[in-house]
Simulated assay, not measured.
Amino acid sequence: MIPAVLAPLSDRPRLLIVDDEAMNIKVLVEMLRDDYALTVAKNGVQALERMAMDPAPDLVLLDVMMPGMDGHEVCRRMKQDPRLADVPVIFVTALGDPNDELHGFDLGAVDYLTKPLTPLLAKARVRTHVQLARAQRALENYSHTLEARVAERTQEVERVQAVTIRALASLAETRDNETGNHIRRTQHYVRALALHLHAHPRFAGQLDDRTIDLLFKSAPLHDVGKVGIPDRILLKPGPLTDEEFTIMKTHTVLGRSALRAAVEEGGESEIAFLRHACDIAAYHHEKWDGTGYPEGLAGEAIPLSARLMAVADVYDALISRRVYKPPFPHARARELIVADRGARFDPDIVDAFLALEDVFRDIRNRYCDEDEIDPS
C-alpha cells in the first residue's frame, strides 16, 4: 500500500499526485521524490480531501481517467475554490485527442503530460510550472506589501497635511481675536452640508467621498489671507470705513495667492487638495446674485466649495460673539440665512442647512467657545 505522504513536508515544493493506478503513482514518485515533498491520492474525492488540509500544494499532477470523479471534475472544483484556484494543474493522461487537451485547458490546467511519461520532459515541465507558481505568489506578496506601504505612506502624508492645515489656520486665528473655535465649527458645517447634498442631482457628480474629505480638510484655510491684513483693520473694535473694508476684502485674494503658490510647487496630490483650499479662500464671500467679492461671480460660476463655505461661515458669524454684536440665537440666524436664499446663498444649500438644523446646533454646542452662551 502506498502511503498518502511519501516525503516529509518541508521547504521543498509540495506536489500532489492523483491517479487510480498504483503503478502510475509509483512511476511519478520515483521520478520526483528527490526534489519535492509528495502527497498522493487514489481518486478525485481523496484528492480534494488532501487539498483541504493546510498547506495547499504547489502543483497537482492529475490523472484524467478515474472512476467516479474524474480529473476534469477535480480541476473544475479546484478552480471554484478561492484557496485552490491558483494552484497549477498538470493533467497526466493516455488520451491523445487534441479536443481533450483543449477541454482541460478551458478548465484551467496549465499543461499536459502524456503516458507513458518521458522522465526528463516530465521533470522539466513540473519544475517550470512550480517555479512560475512560486514566482507569481512572490509577486503577489510583494504587491500586497507594496500596497500596505503605499497606504501607510498615504496616511502619513494625510497626517502631515492635517497638521500643516491646522498650523496655517491657527496662524490666521492668532491674528483675529474673534475667531475662537470658528475654524473647527465651519469645518464640520461644510462636511455636514456636503454629505447631505452628495446624492442631490445638482451635486452628485461633484461630491464624492474623496472630495468631501478634501473639503473638510481645506475649510480651515478659508481666512488664511487675514494674515496679510493690518492689525489696525483686522482688530478694529468698531465698524470699518469704506476704505478699511476695501482692504479687508483683499484677504480673499491674499489667501488665494498664497495657496496657489503652494499648488504650483506641489505634486498631483497636493494640487487636488489645495485646489479646493484656493477656491474656498478666494470665493467664500461671493454671492449667488453676483454682488459679492472679489470677482462678482454669480450662481454656479462660484465654486461649490465656496458656496458651501459661505453658508457655514455666515451662520457661525451670526451665532458667535463679535466686538460689535452679541451672539444671535439659532432662530434669528436661521431667519437671516433664509432671507438671503437665492440672493447671497445657493438656494439648494440653504435648503440643506434647514434640513440639518439639529446637526448645526450639535456642532455649535460641541465646539462652543467658553465665554459664549449656547444660542437656542
Rank of each mutant, 00 (worst) to 15 (best):
residue 108 G to R: 11
residue 64 V to A: 13
residue 128 T to Q: 09
residue 205 G to Q: 11
residue 128 T to H: 10
residue 263 V to E: 14
residue 48 L to T: 11
residue 352 A to I: 05
residue 21 E to D: 13
residue 128 T to V: 05
residue 168 L to E: 02
residue 156 E to L: 09
residue 373 I to V: 13
residue 95 L to P: 01
residue 84 L to P: 08
residue 359 V to Y: 02
residue 31 M to S: 04
residue 237 P to R: 07
residue 37 A to H: 06
residue 273 F to L: 15
residue 291 T to L: 14
residue 312 A to C: 08
residue 112 Y to F: 15
residue 73 E to I: 05
residue 259 L to Y: 10
residue 237 P to Q: 12
residue 168 L to S: 02
residue 52 A to V: 04
residue 82 P to G: 10
residue 17 I to S: 02
residue 59 L to Q: 07
residue 264 E to F: 12
residue 209 D to H: 05
residue 6 L to D: 03
residue 370 E to K: 02
residue 77 R to S: 09
residue 26 K to T: 11
residue 21 E to W: 00
residue 6 L to F: 01
residue 14 R to L: 14
residue 310 A to G: 13
residue 155 Q to I: 00
residue 313 D to Q: 09
residue 199 A to H: 15
residue 350 V to D: 03
residue 192 A to W: 04
residue 323 V to F: 08
residue 216 F to A: 09
residue 268 E to Q: 11
residue 154 T to K: 11
residue 199 A to E: 15
residue 122 A to F: 00
residue 285 H to S: 13
residue 110 V to G: 06
residue 127 R to H: 14
residue 327 P to K: 06
residue 117 L to I: 14
residue 27 V to P: 05
residue 16 L to I: 10
residue 302 I to W: 06
residue 273 F to R: 12
residue 356 L to E: 14
residue 297 L to V: 01
residue 86 D to M: 14
residue 194 A to T: 09
residue 376 S to Q: 12
residue 356 L to P: 06
residue 137 R to D: 10
residue 308 L to F: 10
residue 310 A to H: 15
residue 187 Q to K: 07
residue 344 R to F: 04
residue 106 D to F: 02
residue 148 A to I: 00
residue 81 D to P: 08
